[in-house]
Amino acid sequence: MIIFNYLLVCLVFGTTFLAIKIGVDASAPPFLSSGIRFFVAGLLLFGWMIWRKKASFSLLLRKEMLLTGIGLTFGTFAPLYWGEQYVASGIAAVFSATAPILILLLQMIIMRQTPSRRSLIGCIVGFIGVILIILPAITLSASMWLLIGSLVILVSQLFYSGGAIYSKQVTKRFPEASPIALNAAQMMYGGALLLMLSACTEHWYFKSLLSADVIGSMLYLIVIGSMIGHSLFYWLVAKTTPVFASTWLYVSPLIALTIGVLLYGEAITWVTVVGAVTIIVGTVLVNYESLKQLFQKPQREITQLQEAHSN
């Protein structure tokens, strides 16, 4: 069951980038569509948790939910949706794999943590991968918007990294609260902020939301991407470890690249593939120690069982 749900999480998160791309290509305002997605998904999830008596309305009154929503939802998805107007969905997914690298950099700068030499090498390797991917946009003046979109999406991962670090502190402050309820609350705040940004910057032509592509994209992202995908992710965290659950970052970008090419006709070059693999290798190096412990744990358990039987 764990392996099945893990593969399902990888597939879901790998397809959400294409769903976003389909929606924005169909002229859905990026901030409006992302705001509706997260506010509705958060509202439904939070209502479900209230019904199961695993959350209370007082959780919505805590400033921690607002701050987490700014990092994990508003600051992450406002740039991502906007950037995907100009960047292929597969490339956007690959850039999402830089989050662990940026988390390490933030821990170095803000928290004064000293990383290992291998982690520093991983940061450099990941940075080289980013350069390889955006290199065509730098050399071709006609692709200026591709360059801007790429940089904006990278900024989104900086927000996500900060939000991820802060959310770890939040979960410690609310040990009695369900992680799903915490996630739902921050999605509601983030979605509300996205809708406010949309009201100030976009024209709300609701006809643009009524096409089959936009409706299909929205439903998929609300139900599959936000409600099911994130719930399965937190289920994996509870049943395994956060490190194991987060390894979707190494699998989903490759899925996103593949389905973008096969199902949506997105162009891909060998430089893009090399850049994507380089970023993932860099991410693996950054998380090497955690991954090593993750894969050594089952072996230790097997050894302990063998010793117990021999005794």
Results as ranks from 00 to 15, higher is better:
residue 119 S to D: 04
residue 87 V to C: 07
residue 92 A to F: 03
residue 195 L to P: 08
residue 258 T to K: 04
residue 27 S to E: 14
residue 248 W to Y: 15
residue 2 I to Y: 06
residue 3 I to Q: 07
residue 132 L to E: 01
residue 14 G to F: 06
residue 285 L to P: 05
residue 232 L to P: 12
residue 292 K to E: 12
residue 39 F to Q: 01
residue 83 G to R: 04
residue 310 S to Q: 14
residue 104 L to V: 05
residue 36 I to P: 07
residue 308 A to G: 02
residue 277 V to E: 02
residue 32 L to Y: 08
residue 283 T to C: 13
residue 287 N to G: 05
residue 212 A to S: 14
residue 211 S to T: 15
residue 168 K to N: 08
residue 209 L to W: 09
residue 76 T to G: 07
residue 230 H to P: 06
residue 231 S to R: 10
residue 10 C to L: 07
residue 256 A to L: 01
residue 63 K to T: 11
residue 83 G to T: 01
residue 189 Y to E: 00
residue 149 G to W: 02
residue 211 S to E: 05
residue 230 H to D: 08
residue 84 E to S: 00
residue 60 L to T: 11
residue 270 W to R: 07
residue 198 S to E: 10
residue 310 S to D: 10
residue 242 P to G: 15
residue 252 S to Y: 03
residue 174 F to T: 08
residue 32 L to K: 09
residue 79 P to M: 09
residue 138 I to T: 12
residue 308 A to E: 05
residue 280 I to R: 03
residue 205 Y to R: 09
residue 31 F to D: 06
residue 202 E to T: 13
residue 160 Y to T: 08
residue 196 M to P: 03
residue 94 V to R: 00
residue 96 S to P: 04
residue 200 C to G: 04
residue 208 S to G: 07
residue 80 L to P: 00
residue 215 I to K: 02
residue 20 I to C: 04
residue 27 S to A: 14
residue 7 L to M: 12
residue 103 I to W: 10
residue 306 Q to Y: 08
residue 257 L to V: 04
residue 147 L to W: 10
residue 37 R to Q: 06
residue 10 C to W: 05
residue 2 I to C: 03
residue 18 L to A: 05
residue 228 I to R: 06
residue 274 V to E: 10
residue 94 V to K: 01
residue 164 A to V: 05
residue 224 I to F: 03
residue 153 I to Q: 00
residue 251 V to H: 11
residue 140 L to V: 14
residue 72 L to S: 10
residue 263 L to G: 02
residue 130 V to S: 03
residue 175 P to A: 10
residue 85 Q to E: 11
residue 93 A to K: 03
residue 160 Y to W: 15
residue 220 Y to V: 06
residue 120 L to Y: 08
residue 131 I to R: 01
residue 79 P to G: 10
residue 268 I to S: 10
residue 16 T to C: 12
residue 75 G to P: 13
residue 173 R to N: 11
residue 275 G to A: 07
residue 169 Q to A: 15
residue 137 A to Q: 14
residue 294 L to I: 09
residue 110 I to Q: 06
residue 68 T to V: 04
residue 263 L to K: 01
residue 101 I to R: 03
residue 283 T to N: 14
residue 284 V to E: 05
residue 251 V to W: 00
residue 224 I to L: 14
residue 141 S to H: 13
residue 103 I to F: 12
residue 11 L to Y: 02
residue 203 H to G: 10
residue 249 L to K: 07
residue 210 L to E: 11
residue 258 T to N: 06
residue 89 S to E: 01
residue 293 Q to D: 13
residue 49 M to E: 08
residue 300 R to D: 14
